[in-house]
């Protein structure tokens, strides 16, 4: 009985804490958006963050995309050739990358590569009182530190997801055409016939924009909100990766159920 009560209490406390953090993060998002003027006017602040979030994530995204494509090519061929439609391997690779794997896997990689770095940087600036020092110099850290990192992530993520999908399709092509011997023309024409610009390509891009926004918000929020100690920063980094990954998968489900309802 007591165990049940305390378990219920734990659930209640977690719920309240979760709702409180969600509300706080929403208010934080509004504050960041309101202080975004400077990062758009002084565009160099944002360009610098695109470098750290985007350019430095390039290698992991390109290599992972290539390997995911290679695996999809092999697996897809293995299944499709049983039905005598091995040319459709391009369709399968392209659709699974554009609709799901591109935005989702690129988002997960982005969260662990760039999101954690942003949280660590902001958290460290908080722990060493750099944010407070900036505030005392009459420079708002939301405008100078947080907003550029947020926008850098929002801009980088869709581009990274597109590169991921492109590399994946290239990987699928490498397996299908030169290795297995599927006809090059059939590979592309089947793909083009099956892939629709609006339902597949555009929806994938929308997904990647949403994921990029979510990961960037979580990353800057966790960094800005962390306990200003070494332990607090490391906990915040873990939370960024865990929360971002869950957010990506949950948002993916919600977006997919809206996008592919089968008109």
């Amino acid at each position: 009985m007591n165990g049940l009560l305390s378990a219920l209490r734990t659930v209640g406390a977690m719920t309240i804490d979760g709702i409180w953090r969600l509300g706080f993060a929403t208010r934080f998002l509004v504050a960041v958006l309101m202080h975004s003027g400077q990062s758009l006017r002084r565009v160099h602040l944002t360009i610098r963050e695109i470098y750290f979030s985007g350019v430095l994530s390039l290698l992991i995204i390109v290599v992972s995309g290539l390997f995911v494509g290679l695996v999809l090519g092999l697996q897809g061929y293995d299944i499709l050739q049983r039905y005598g439609s091995s040319e459709a391997v391009g369709v399968m690779v392209a659709l699974s990358l554009l609709r799901e794997l591109g935005p989702v896997v690129a988002g997960l990689l982005f969260a662990s590569r760039a999101g954690s770095a942003v949280t660590a940087e902001i958290g460290l600036m908080k722990a060493t009182e750099q944010l407070k020092a900036m505030d005392m110099m009459a420079v708002n850290p939301l405008a100078r530190v947080v907003a550029p990192r947020f926008w850098g992530g929002v801009i980088s993520m869709p581009l990274l997801a597109a590169m991921f999908s492109t590399m994946g399709i290239f990987g699928g092509w490498l397996i299908a055409v030169p290795v297995i011997g599927v006809d090059d023309g059939a590979f592309w024409s089947q793909m083009q016939a099956a892939v629709d610009f609006r339902t597949d390509v555009l929806n994938g891009v929308i997904k990647s924009v949403v994921f990029g926004t979510a990961v960037s918000l979580i990353a800057v929020f966790e960094g800005y909100d962390c306990q200003p100690t070494a332990e607090g920063v490391s906990r915040a980094i873990t939370r960024t990766v865990v929360t971002s990954s869950l957010a990506i998968l949950a948002l993916d489900f919600v977006l997919t159920s809206f996008m592919f309802r089968g008109q």
Binding site: Y51, A94, L159, T166, W188, M191, Q192, V201
Partner: peptide
Amino acid sequence: FVAIGFAALTFLAMKVGN
């Protein structure tokens, strides 16, 4: 980086999405 990103988007739209 941005140029490669847009090239990839264009590739997806034109070559893949027709």
